[in-house]
Design a binder for these strands. Structure first.
Lengths: 126, 126
DNA sequence: TTCGAATCCCTACATTTGTAGTTGCCAAAT
DNA sequence: ATTTGGCAACTACAAATGTAGGGATTCGAA
């Protein structure tokens, strides 16, 4: 697997928008993100360029000939990479302490706890 | 709560060393970290200075009058902050998807699964 | 056909981060 | 007293990040 690009925090917002819906043009993306990040369109374009350089997204073209952008890497893969790196940095790479931490620091509903326990069991025999 | 300082990746290594054992002088720290990070002592000093500016560590003095460094913030609090930020960035702030992700992507032993389930149960009734 | 809005391509610039090097000073060993 | 070995204080400098601005081009509407 080609090692995944390093996606910064701002860039991640763009990626999320594209994973959510793509292709999108720069101005569409700007509008999509306007509510959350109040970025100037040039800011969005700069980030898009950087993401292309990093190989995280590709370009296409819509019917009117305007450039469009779409993910070149899968979200799940990026989430795994970010997760690995976080786990490494903060929990020395160990999953259990991480899970313990979040289990203890989150208010989960009984239903969620039930689901999680099920997933834990499944993680064993598969 | 005094909002916690933003600790970078390299800085985090220093903090870990200090949480593990403090106070330490700059040269002690350099030696402590030598096996992992092969940093020049000046690098360590620069990072220490930045951590002081950020309010993450404080200084003291040992019996020989040499400056020592020690944490000014608790590890658990920083871990919580980093965890929050990570969960926000990657999982939109939701704990369950995060837990599901790590539960599925880690090879846990039966024993660990047992412990985790117990912790999940406890997280409910407390 | 001309003007303005949308697109693109460059350039800019302050911060943060990673990683030191340089210099000055002081106390301990010759 | 001189040298030397630490320690402290500054300075350095490139890459990555956040956040745009300006100029050229083009396409559709007036």
């Amino acid at each position: 697997m080609p090692s995944l690009p390093d996606i910064s925090e701002s860039e991640w917002s763009l990626m999320e928008a594209l994973w959510e819906s793509s292709p999108q043009t720069a101005s569409e993306l700007t509008k999509t993100l306007r509510p959350t990040m109040n970025w100037a369109e040039n800011t969005v374009r700069t980030l898009l360029t950087r993401l292309i350089d990093k190989g995280a997204i590709k370009t296409g073209e819509n019917s009117s000939g305007t450039r469009t952008y779409l993910p070149a890497v899968k979200r799940e893969a990026c989430v795994r990479a970010e997760g690995e790196s976080f786990m490494q940095r903060i929990f020395g790479g160990a999953a259990k302490p991480l899970l313990v931490h979040f289990a203890q620091n989150s208010k989960l509903t009984a239903e969620e706890v039930r689901e999680l326990k099920k997933i834990l069991d499944q993680s064993l025999n598969s």
